[in-house]
Design a protein around this nucleic acid. Structure first.
Lengths: 158, 158
DNA sequence: ACCCTAAAGTTGCTTGATGCAACCGAGTGT
DNA sequence: ACACTCGGTTGCATCAAGCAACTTTAGGGT
């Protein structure tokens, strides 16, 4: 990105300075869906490896992801969402809902469910069945009628 | 953008194919805030004119903005949000809320209010005072304690 | 010993999107 | 006649993204 900053007194602009680069939100979505390792994300997105490395370090620097070693010698790490990262859940949900309603012809490829009651989650992050207002930890994703592969019933790890 | 498509069966990815380019969401935010003309948006964002032209035609093609002439000879137009564009309001609200909570040190630069009761709108697009679930037409933006210039009490035109 | 595989990147080169400034065309103001 | 406005378009330079090859530290097979 040429000039990374948008220089605006606006929280949308400030958010986009961190999230607005190509691939960034899809990387975050993958981590939400339980893909925590470099190669898993790289293969899922088909993103260039150098670009993925740049995005991950930037997200770690921004406090959105956390890098944790899961083995030594050789050291291998996984990426987890921090609280700040988990707070992005409503953004992802709102964007998914908009795409479901305006871009998906064959129905939603992915449906989000409420863990406690199994109800479907709406575009504002509320459970359609019990009406509860949810956060990232209260929900899980599953393939929908639009047919998405690679969507395990994953929970956002923290 | 090199490969515009992310090629994923996911509504987040499909939404980002339209919205994910640099500047696009800020252009939409400006139209939400009543900036409907080319030069108004260009001066507010400091975006290159050719890039703004490209974004606007793409957003019109995508059915998010609508181009309407407001005078003849010479023909001048304004850009308005369509229903599809107005439906992006929850995305903007969620992103603004995240930035307010995690990036704004001096308080929110902009606060969204409920037209009917004047209450403040939360990150899910609900009125904190009367509890109503709101849409774009129910709300207006005003400068907040974080100090944002150029935020008239504007309503999203349609 | 030797070869293959794996994870998590790094390096170098090419391609394409962005930034900048200048220009254009139709009409208005003085 | 001249400058000015709005809504762009054109040309060129720069920087980010894409791609493939390479690296490091290990384990497994023969």
């Amino acid at each position: 990105m040429l000039r990374r900053e948008y220089d605006q007194a606006c929280s949308v602009a400030r958010s986009l300075e961190v999230l607005g680069e190509r691939w960034t939100l899809l990387v975050i979505r993958d981590v939400f869906n339980g893909k925590r390792r470099f190669d898993a994300i790289q293969q899922d997105l088909g993103i260039a490896r150098n670009v993925l490395a740049a995005r991950l370090t930037r997200l770690v620097d921004a406090g959105i992801l956390e890098k944790r070693p899961y083995q030594q010698r050789p050291t291998r790490h996984e990426y987890f969402l921090t609280e700040k990262g988990l707070d992005l859940w409503p953004v992802i949900v709102a964007m998914m809902d908009w795409g479901d309603r305006h871009l998906a012809e064959t129905g939603p490829p992915v449906v989000i469910h409420h863990k406690d009651c199994g109800g479907v989650v709406d575009g504002r992050g509320y459970c359609r069945r019990c009406g509860e207002r949810l956060n990232a930890r209260d929900a899980y994703a599953e393939p929908g009628p639009g047919g998405a592969a690679g969507y395990p019933s994953s929970t956002p790890g923290a």
